[in-house]
Each structure stands twice: as structure tokens, then as C-alpha cells.
């Protein structure tokens, strides 16, 4: 089994995540799909580190994890606040920021 299969998996996961972000309305689901995309890239980074035999990819993966953790904190807080005020978690309902 070649290392490149991990890359294929990463690509599939990323695509699923992207499709979820574009198609789903529920903010929680969209949020989870974003996480999925981030993890897909992490997988790709780690794979590349393996392929090239250095640690660069792994270091970036750690950075991504840190950013993702921070994003979860802020993102979930926003979603909860929106839910409290608007009684809805649909992203299409939060469309006031326009024109």
C-alpha cells in the first residue's frame, strides 16, 4: 500500500468537508465540515512530511491544530450567541451583513 493513498483519502475528506460547508444550512454542521477540511489538510501535511522525510509538514500540522482549537472556541461562542438571539442555527438566517 503506497503512501499516496493517504493523499487520496485527504482529498476525499476535504471534498466532503467543502461540499458540507456549501450545502448544509445548520451552522453546527457547517462548522464541523470546516473542521473536517482542516483535518484533511493535516493528513496531507503529515503525509508529505513522511514522503519528504523531514518534519516541516508535521510542524505545520501542529500549527493548524492550534488554530483549529482557537477557532472552535470563537466559532462555537458566536454560534451560541446567534442561536440565543435569533432562535435559529441556520446560516441563511444570519444574512444581515450585506450590501
Amino acid at each position: 500500500m503506497g503512501v499516496q493513498n493517504y493523499l487520496y483519502l485527504s482529498a476525499i475528506l476535504f471534498t466532503i468537508g467543502a461540499a458540507g460547508v456549501l450545502l448544509r444550512r445548520n451552522a453546527i454542521v457547517v462548522f464541523m465540515c470546516v473542521e473536517l477540511m482542516l483535518n484533511a489538510t493535516n493528513l496531507a501535511f503529515v503525509t508529505f512530511a513522511r514522503i519528504h522525510g523531514n518534519l516541516d509538514g508535521q510542524i505545520i500540522a501542529f500549527f493548524v491544530m492550534v488554530v483549529a482549537a482557537a477557532e472552535v472556541v470563537v466559532g462555537l461562542a458566536i454560534i451560541v450567541t446567534i442561536f440565543r438571539t435569533r432562535r435559529s442555527t441556520s446560516v441563511d438566517d444570519a444574512n444581515l451583513l450585506k450590501y
Binding site: L22, L23, V91, D92, N95, L96, K98
Partner: peptide, 17 residues
Amino acid sequence: LRRLQTGFVRSYALSML
């Protein structure tokens, strides 16, 4: 051109993609 800013997050995401 302003009208392109619809306020729908998903359409922005699509344009980013």
C-alpha cells in the same frame, strides 16, 4: 456590483472555493 454582497455565507464560501 454591491448587489453581489448577498449576506449569505454559503455563497461567499462558494466564491472563495
